[in-house]
Amino acid sequence: MSFNLNGTVAFVTGASSGIGHATARTLAGLGAAVALVARRKDRLDALVAEIEQAGGTALAIPADITDRASAEAAVAQAAAQLGRIDILVNNAGVMNIGRVADNTVESWEQMIALNQQALLYVTKAALPHLQAAAESNTRGVADIVNISSYAGRVASPNFAVYNMTKFGVNGFTEALRQELAASHVRVGALEPGAVETELNDRHEGAVRDEISAFFARIEPLQADDIADGVAYMVTRPRRAAVGELWIMPTNQG
């Protein structure tokens, strides 16, 4: 069984840092040309240089995918310049945690816009390209991997709206998997537990102290651990689909 992705194109959102950055590097290392999508152009350009120096192919596409037109344009640019899209990794996301009574409506709207609406915009735009890739002779299969969260499985205080967004991602993922099964476009959710990324640096005050204390009690996952999970999902033989992959720190209860 071959584990390389030679001849394929991967489209990775949130590629400027953390899980998206690590996933893009990993998929490029397996032979995929990678479209890197995020808002921070300087970081995307640096990642393109890193991938190219290692012998890979990458394209930086600065975009705010919470805007539907921008999301659609990013997909169109990737398909036009790289020739196809075989793998979509919906990784972009934000986690604004805190009590419902204390959080702002604006912070909820930001999570819904990025964690859910942007994922929908990109998936809808990429779907024709993925279906075409699945019908080609390259692999005969295409992949959508939605980066969800342990918070999409278990609800917790201070995570209410984040829980809502990730429970929604899991439901959408499974429904779409069933819709696309016959076309050999595989759809799966990857649900990490605690991962040490910039996502945790957004918070201040008591919430930040609580997160720091929690991370001090466990050995958190690293972004590369999740990238390895994505690579596992998209390198299965055509007959095998991973609908859900749950990766936790060993000592996270």
Score class of each variant (00 low, 15 high):
residue 8 T to C: 09
residue 10 A to Q: 05
residue 12 V to R: 03
residue 13 T to A: 10
residue 14 G to W: 00
residue 17 S to H: 12
residue 17 S to M: 11
residue 19 I to M: 10
residue 22 A to Y: 02
residue 29 G to K: 05
residue 31 G to Y: 00
residue 33 A to Y: 02
residue 33 A to E: 02
residue 36 L to I: 10
residue 36 L to V: 12
residue 38 A to C: 10
residue 42 D to A: 14
residue 43 R to Y: 03
residue 46 A to W: 03
residue 46 A to N: 11
residue 48 V to Q: 00
residue 49 A to P: 07
residue 50 E to P: 01
residue 52 E to S: 12
residue 60 A to W: 01
residue 60 A to N: 05
residue 61 I to Y: 02
residue 62 P to M: 14
residue 64 D to A: 06
residue 64 D to S: 09
residue 64 D to G: 04
residue 68 R to G: 10
residue 69 A to V: 06
residue 70 S to L: 10
residue 75 V to I: 12
residue 79 A to Y: 01
residue 80 A to K: 15
residue 81 Q to R: 14
residue 85 I to G: 03
residue 89 V to G: 02
residue 91 N to H: 07
residue 95 M to F: 09
residue 98 G to F: 02
residue 99 R to E: 11
residue 107 S to Q: 11
residue 109 E to K: 13
residue 112 I to E: 03
residue 117 Q to H: 10
residue 118 A to D: 08
residue 123 T to L: 06
residue 127 L to E: 03
residue 128 P to F: 08
residue 130 L to Q: 04
residue 131 Q to R: 15
residue 131 Q to K: 15
residue 133 A to G: 15
residue 135 E to T: 07
residue 136 S to E: 07
residue 137 N to K: 15
residue 139 R to E: 08
residue 139 R to I: 06
residue 141 V to P: 00
residue 143 D to F: 09
residue 146 N to T: 09
residue 147 I to H: 05
residue 151 A to E: 02
residue 152 G to A: 07
residue 152 G to C: 09
residue 152 G to K: 08
residue 153 R to E: 11
residue 155 A to Q: 06
residue 156 S to V: 07
residue 158 N to I: 08
residue 159 F to G: 02
residue 159 F to E: 10
residue 160 A to P: 00
residue 167 F to M: 13
residue 169 V to Y: 01
residue 174 E to G: 06
residue 175 A to T: 15
residue 179 E to G: 10
residue 180 L to R: 04
residue 184 H to D: 12
residue 184 H to Y: 10
residue 184 H to V: 00
residue 186 R to L: 04
residue 188 G to Y: 03
residue 192 P to A: 12
residue 198 E to A: 14
residue 201 D to V: 06
residue 202 R to M: 08
residue 205 G to L: 10
residue 206 A to H: 11
residue 207 V to M: 14
residue 207 V to T: 15
residue 207 V to W: 02
residue 209 D to T: 13
residue 210 E to A: 15
residue 211 I to D: 02
residue 213 A to K: 11
residue 216 A to I: 09
residue 219 E to F: 04
residue 221 L to V: 09
residue 221 L to Q: 05
residue 226 I to V: 12
residue 227 A to C: 10
residue 227 A to F: 01
residue 228 D to C: 00
residue 230 V to W: 01
residue 231 A to M: 05
residue 232 Y to A: 12
residue 233 M to E: 09
residue 235 T to S: 12
residue 236 R to W: 00
residue 241 A to T: 14
residue 241 A to M: 14
residue 242 V to I: 15
residue 245 L to K: 08
residue 246 W to N: 13
residue 247 I to N: 02
residue 249 P to R: 10
residue 249 P to T: 11
residue 250 T to P: 00
residue 251 N to P: 00
residue 253 G to Q: 14
residue 253 G to E: 11
